[in-house]
Simulated assay, not measured.
Amino acid sequence: MDDSIKRWTAKRKTALVSEIIQGKTTVAEASRSFDLTPSEIEGWVEDAKRGMENSLRANPLDIREQYEKQLKDLQEAYGEAMLELRARKKAASPAGCAGRELIRSIQQGLLSEGIMVSIAKLCAWFGVPRRTVYYTPTKAAPKVDPRFADPIKEMIEQEPSFGYRTVAWLLGFNKNTVQRIFQLKGWQVRKRAIGMRPRIQAVPSVATAPNERWSTDLARVWTGKDGWASLALVIDCHTRELLGWHLSRSGKATTATAALEHALIARFGTLGRVEREFLLRSDNGLVFTSRHFTALVRSYGLRQEFITPHCPQQNGMVERVIRTLKEQCTHRHRFESIQHATRVIGDWISFYNHRRPHQALAMRTPAEAFRLAA
Rank of each mutant, 00 (worst) to 15 (best):
W228G: 07
F268V: 02
T166K: 15
L280A: 04
P137A: 06
H358T: 12
E101Y: 05
H333C: 09
P366S: 03
K13Y: 04
A360C: 10
P94S: 09
R213Q: 15
P142R: 13
D35L: 02
T255K: 00
A229D: 10
S31R: 00
N176D: 12
F268L: 10
A10F: 10
A362R: 13
T255Q: 05
M196P: 11
A256T: 03
Q201D: 11
K89S: 09
Q75D: 15
E277I: 09
L233K: 00
S161F: 08
T342M: 02
E241L: 13
L111W: 14
R240G: 03
N211A: 09
P129D: 13
E19I: 00
Q70T: 05
M52D: 09
R291N: 13
V344M: 11
W187L: 07
Q304A: 13
A77V: 07
K175L: 01
N176F: 00
F268A: 04
T342H: 06
Y78A: 12
V117P: 10
L231Q: 02
A141Y: 08
S4L: 14
C123F: 08
L325Q: 07
A263I: 01
A95S: 14
E368D: 15
A259H: 01
Q66P: 00
R32C: 04
S215E: 13
L260E: 10
R276Y: 04
H354R: 15
G23W: 09
E368N: 08
Q108W: 06
K185W: 02
E336A: 12
Y164K: 01
D47Y: 01
V318R: 02
R249N: 15
L171V: 10
S18Q: 15
S31W: 00
G96T: 11
L74I: 09
S161R: 10
V344L: 09
A295R: 12
S350P: 02
A369E: 12
S215D: 07
W8Y: 14
W44G: 00
E277R: 10
L271P: 00
P160H: 02
R199I: 08
E19M: 15
C123G: 09
R130S: 07
K225A: 12
E319R: 05
V234F: 03
P146L: 09
A207Y: 06
M82C: 10
M52W: 09
I322N: 10
F306L: 15
Q66M: 05
H331F: 04
G227P: 12
R267N: 01
C123K: 04
A258R: 01
P198W: 00
K13H: 06
G285F: 03
T136L: 10
W228E: 14
E46P: 00
G79N: 15
E42R: 09
G285N: 03
P357I: 05
A77L: 13
Q328E: 15
K139C: 13
L83Q: 14
E68K: 14
R131G: 10
V206Y: 14
E76H: 08
L242S: 08
K139P: 07
E68A: 14
T216L: 08
L325E: 06
V128R: 01
F182C: 07
N315W: 03
F288E: 07
R276F: 02
Y67P: 00
A10I: 11
T289P: 04
Q328K: 04
A141E: 14
M196C: 09
N211W: 04
H310Y: 15
T166N: 02
